[in-house]
Design a binder for these strands. Structure first.
Length: 241
DNA sequence: TAGGCCATCTGGTCCT
DNA sequence: AGGACCAGATGGCCTA
């Protein structure tokens, strides 16, 4: 534990020092920029702990400089991750606004998963309904060709609901995220029940309405799919890691 | 005050 | 060699 690096870390650099190393505020937000900006020669080398030798050869200040550089990179990486997380929050069908507490990271991920499952289910339901409408004939207008499968299950302009979606809200803000093994706070998706929405009641009452109009999406047109919402948060085997 | 969430640092591992 | 990625540790902030 007492390595040279820990020696450095034992000298807590001031925040100013860290910030001055790289202006993260000016970062472009291109998540993949750090991966593609520098051309690196590809060569397979045996991985061995060569850092230890190098560290001993480096002076104290050089080590500190290296540490600051690495820390800065890691900070930027985490900032990129947070920006991506914010982008995910923006497209989630959840009430946004100053009066709404921001979803936590774990809640965002779980909600996103739920949302994807819901959309998948909606698409399947749409296909089924179209199949019924146009008859069961194999030459009906509805044929699940690859091109049509990418078709408009929802209008292209159908963005995220300004209000919590009926299929999403219960899963996040009140009902247990069907993962069950999550902590209550995480399962609630917010820091404390009822604290996410100051106007939770109003939001909940807007279920079948979408911006004052009947919601065009299939979730509001047809009964909720039997298997998705409740099973939305069932944990994958890999989740249990 | 305990618990949750988060940012940051850090060392290790993997990849190019 | 350098960078990305990952996970553990730590401390601060906030809320019930």
């Amino acid at each position: 534990m007492d390595s040279d690096a820990s020696l450095i870390s034992s000298q807590p650099s001031s925040p100013d020092l860290f910030l001055s190393d790289e202006p993260t505020s000016g970062f472009s937000g291109t998540v993949s920029s750090t991966q593609s900006e520098c051309g690196r020669g590809a060569q397979g080398r045996p991985r061995e702990p060569l850092r230890a030798k190098d560290k001993k050869q480096m002076s104290e200040s050089e080590l500190q400089q290296l540490r600051l550089k690495i820390n800065s990179r890691e900070r930027k990486r985490m900032h990129d991750l947070n920006i991506a997380m914010d982008g995910l929050r923006e497209v989630m069908p959840y009430a946004h606004g100053p009066s709404v507490r921001k979803l936590s990271k774990i809640a965002t991920l779980l909600l996103a998963r739920n949302y994807i499952l819901m959309l998948t289910s909606s698409l399947e339901e749409m296909k089924r309904l179209l199949g019924e409408i146009y008859g069961g004939g194999h030459h009906s207008s509805f044929h699940p060709s690859p091109a049509c499968q990418a078709g408009p299950a929802l209008p292209p302009s159908h963005g995220p609901h300004p209000l919590p979606h009926p299929a999403m809200v219960p899963a996040v803000s009140s009902a247990p995220l069907a993962g069950a093994s999550l902590s209550p706070a995480v399962a609630a998706g917010v820091r404390g029940p009822g604290s996410l929405l100051k106007t939770a009641g109003a939001a909940a009452s807007g279920f079948q309405q979408w911006a004052g109009m009947p919601c065009p999406c299939t979730m509001c047109q047809v009964p909720p799919p039997p298997h998705v919402p409740s099973a939305g948060m069932t944990r994958l085997p890999s989740d249990s890691k």
